[in-house]
Simulated scan of single mutants.
Amino acid sequence: MNGPRDKRTARLIRVDGSGNGDFKKIQQAIDSVPSQNNELVFIWVKPGTYREKIVVPEDKPYITISGSKASDTIITWNQGRDLLQSPVVSIFASDFVGRFLTIKNTFGTSGIAVALRVSADRAAFYGCRIISFQDTLLDDSGRHYFNNCYIEGATDFICGNAASLYERCHLHSTSDRGGAMTAQHRNTAEENTGFVFLGGKITGSGSMFLGRPWGDFSKVVFGYTYMSNVVEPEGWNDWGDPTKQRTVSYGEYKCYGPGANRAKRVVWSRSLSTDEATKLFTKDIIGGRAWLRPAPSHFKTH
């Protein structure tokens, strides 16, 4: 599949819960896109709260789902306990874009409850709010870009084995004590995956760790990030398995704020060199120049 020839023009589908659009439900709009879709599709969601589980299937690439602002365009569901069954929104199609949406799992504090699962290559999210308690964002597989997003949770709330760049994102911990913000799942040194956080800020209540290793070769780095005093002085946790200390890649570069002091950091985390930072803190790590695309400038309704 070579993709759309015209990358500026999208087919417009309007979703309005009050009935003034093409569909009342977001899933109905997705279902209307033909299998093996090969044109840009822009699903414009009018303000409202949409209580539905959403799946973008693998055979429907090039879809954008966009609100006007995240605070008034809310997709919500209440399901937990199962990592793969609980997500409010699941993305399986490549070349997906989410814009200005709140995606919220209201299951609460009694276990796994995923808000967003991204299991596809080349997915980008702009100005979204992604909210739950445990495993909020299953950043599962593929190359992904998150820009100016708000992500909230208490335990392993960004987890998975994608290769992702988080630029200017706000991470907010609701952990009382010792929760981990990230649980990256890289299993071998050969895998080109990991979470890179560039700019942005970390806030919260209680205390939390920057990450712990779901996979033996877990890889997470923070650069130029504001860290409030919610970050534990040790910074990182080995999930009760000291053998992983030898294989994880946890690094920080020119972070600031009361939680960024590395004086008491675990010795198996690192301050990145300028050379390392120059290579990591760029869209090149996700091949972004080849697939990140601007919002369409022209629309057609048929």
Rank of each mutant, 00 (worst) to 15 (best):
Arg246Phe: 15
Leu280Tyr: 01
Ala183Thr: 07
Ile286Pro: 02
Glu152His: 05
Ser273Gln: 03
Thr243Trp: 09
Ala162Ser: 15
Ala260Val: 07
Asp176Val: 10
Ala183His: 01
Glu190Met: 13
Tyr253Pro: 01
Met208His: 10
Phe195Glu: 00
Val266Phe: 02
Tyr250Ala: 02
Tyr226Ile: 05
Ala180Cys: 14
Val267Lys: 09
Tyr150Trp: 14
Ala183Asn: 05
Leu210Thr: 08
Ser249Met: 10
Arg246Cys: 06
Gly251Ser: 11
Lys283Thr: 14
Glu152Phe: 06
Ala290Cys: 10
Gly160Pro: 00
Ser218Gly: 08
Asp241Cys: 10
Thr274Tyr: 12
Arg186Val: 08
Lys283Asn: 13
Ser207Gly: 13
Ser164Cys: 12
Thr188Asn: 08
Thr274Ile: 14
Val221His: 05
Gly259Arg: 04
Arg246Trp: 08
Val248Thr: 11
Val230Ser: 02
Ala163Glu: 11
Gly160Tyr: 01
Gly257Pro: 09
Ser273Pro: 00
Glu191Asp: 07
Ser249Asn: 12
Ile286Met: 11
Lys244Glu: 07
Tyr224Arg: 13
Gly288Glu: 03
Leu198Ser: 08
Tyr253Cys: 09
Glu252Gly: 11
Leu210Asn: 08
Pro213Thr: 02
His185Pro: 04
Ser175His: 06
Ala263Leu: 12
Phe157Ile: 10
Gly251Cys: 03
Ser273Leu: 08
Lys254His: 13
Gly215His: 04
Phe157Lys: 01
Phe222Pro: 03
Ser164Trp: 01
Pro213Asn: 03
Trp239Phe: 13
Gly259Val: 12
Glu232Ile: 12
Asn187Met: 14
Thr225Gln: 06
Lys279Tyr: 12
Thr182Ile: 09
Asn229Ala: 15
Arg177Lys: 15
Tyr224Ser: 14
Trp236Arg: 07
Tyr226Arg: 04
Thr243His: 05
Leu165Val: 13
Gly211Pro: 05
Ser273Val: 08
Pro213Cys: 09
Lys244Pro: 01
Gly194Met: 01
Thr225Lys: 00
Thr243Ser: 15
Trp291Gly: 04
Trp236Phe: 14
Ser228Pro: 05
Glu152Thr: 04
Gly240Val: 04
Ser249His: 08
Phe222Gly: 00
Ser207Trp: 05
Phe195Thr: 00
Asn261Pro: 00
Trp214Gln: 15
Gly179Ile: 05
Phe197Lys: 04
Lys254Trp: 03
Asn192Ala: 14
Thr155Trp: 11
Cys255Met: 08
Pro233Gln: 11
Asn261Ile: 15
Ser218Cys: 07
Val231Leu: 06
Phe209Glu: 05
Ser207Lys: 03
Glu252His: 13
Thr182Val: 13
Ser271Ile: 09
Ala263Val: 15
Ile151Tyr: 00
Thr193Lys: 06
Ala162Thr: 07
Tyr253His: 12
Gly259His: 06
Arg186Asp: 06
Ser271Ala: 12
Glu167Cys: 06
Lys254Leu: 14
Ala180Tyr: 03
Gly215Trp: 08
Ala263Gln: 11
Pro213Gly: 03
Phe209Ser: 09
Asp275Ala: 15
Leu171Gln: 03
Val220Thr: 09
Ile285Pro: 01
Ala189Cys: 07
Ala189Met: 13
Thr174Gln: 11
Gly178Arg: 10
Arg270Cys: 10
Thr274Arg: 15
Ala180Trp: 02
Pro233Ala: 13
Val221Ser: 12
Arg289Cys: 12
Glu276Arg: 11
Trp214Asp: 15
Glu252Val: 15
Val221Ile: 14
Tyr150Val: 07
Thr247Leu: 11
